[in-house]
Design a protein around this nucleic acid. Structure first.
Lengths: 226, 226
DNA sequence: ACAAATATAATAGTATTACTATCATTTAAT
DNA sequence: ATTAAATGATAGTAATACTATTATATTTGT
């Protein structure tokens, strides 16, 4: 029953690839090993050539799956969002109390994946690292409007919307639910980056991770009436 | 008296340049025109060659000031932080009431520069655009730890610290002041990006800018006792 | 079992990027 | 007027981000 969840094939926007990477061995290698390589050397220094060597194939083969390294990163980030969307569904299902629902949702958005518990993706922990270090780069470009038209941010928007609805169930008068949720999603990743590299900018640390605690506190105070 | 403020030469960390760009005409052109060009084509497509053509000089000349385009961006972002640090000082000076001080500080951190009012830099409005679209890229790299050792983020840290102290004057028990401030600084830039490009992710828009209002509300609720 | 279709490997090539190096010339300082 | 410093002009390099071509496997349908 538990392993039901594991490794479902999550559908990804077709504009993001030339050939579905989840449909072949090489494709799956591209996904899994690119996560490793990006974590190792950073997205700026990551190239298809280096990835090709790592997975013993050729640059040209990788280009048959993805038209650019930017699209590959966008694919990975979308994979993560789909995974969060799935976890949101599971963790809030059968829970009626809105406050508890919101608490669970914030947990899914802000906590690190637990290595003990089962995952939706085989490499969720490494993928979360990619998200923390690289995710902003997928929208901070001049191409964002065209890519948005192609719907590549729609899963992200759905996630935000689902949590916004929970907030509205608690306090329909609160005027900034979308801002609050995106602030929490993006902020929680940034705080983890700060904890690792610029600790003076945060109160959290790797030994004592306060990220979820901080945002749970912040959200519930923010949506209070008055 | 008003114009006192205008265009003070703000000191910038020496590790960021090879030759002080504020010391020559070409240097100043590099700063001002790179802001324009980055806003026009985005940092990824920005090159020293294109900038050289724009300011009628050569690539080699620009390389005499900055060792890479990344260092130039870091310089610009530091320029912005220095400018914010200066404005924080001015706007909170002679104000005793901590709550009012915090309100003013949040205003400096979250509001767009007012085109009517005087500026600390000649191009503050365009520079703010660069910050909104590109600032995260200066620390989201594998080089962040080395650059941090060189002190290139110290002005940012000082800004954060100064506001943290105001919060502590209001509520010394609040456990997450640094997280709260960096969440607001980074979040306010991100919300403006969303308003321009991914409006479903925010409640703010270009016609009705709710960014400051949202964060003022959020901060004061967050630091409330209990 | 065999032909046809498809996927991958191997290789080559291109324009651009992100620099470094050299040397001549202009400009500024003493 | 001399020297030093800044800039211009030009060249060159390794790496990047691709595209193209052809040969060789592998899979699939019949």
């Amino acid at each position: 029953m538990e392993s039901f969840l594991q490794f479902i094939k999550l559908p990804i926007n077709e504009k993001l690839y030339l050939k579905d990477p989840q449909s072949s061995e090489i494709g799956n290698k591209i996904l899994n090993e690119s996560i490793e390589l990006i974590n190792e050397i950073g997205f700026e220094k990551f190239t298809f050539k280096k990835l090709a060597i790592k997975i013993s194939t050729t640059e040209a083969s990788i280009y048959r799956y993805f038209e650019s390294k930017h699209k590959l990163l966008l694919y990975l980030i979308n994979w993560y969002w789909s995974c969060i969307a799935t976890r949101l569904l599971f963790e809030t299902s059968n829970i009626q109390d809105s406050t508890l629902r919101l608490q669970k949702a914030i947990h899914v958005l802000t906590a690190l994946p637990n290595p003990e518990k089962e995952h939706v993706l085989p490499n969720e922990i490494a993928l979360k690292e990619v998200v923390i270090n690289e995710a902003s780069k997928v929208f901070l470009t001049k191409d964002v409007d065209n890519e948005n038209k192609d719907g590549v941010f729609s899963v992200y928007k759905t996630v935000v919307n689902n949590v916004v609805e929970i907030i509205q169930a608690i306090n329909p008068e609160y005027p900034f639910p979308n801002m609050l949720i995106t602030t929490v999603i993006e902020g929680s990743n940034q705080q983890r980056f700060f904890a690792q590299h610029l600790p003076k900018l945060t109160n959290s640390s790797q030994s004592s991770d306060l990220v979820e605690e901080f945002y749970q506190d912040m959200i519930f105070k923010a949506i209070q009436h008055g």
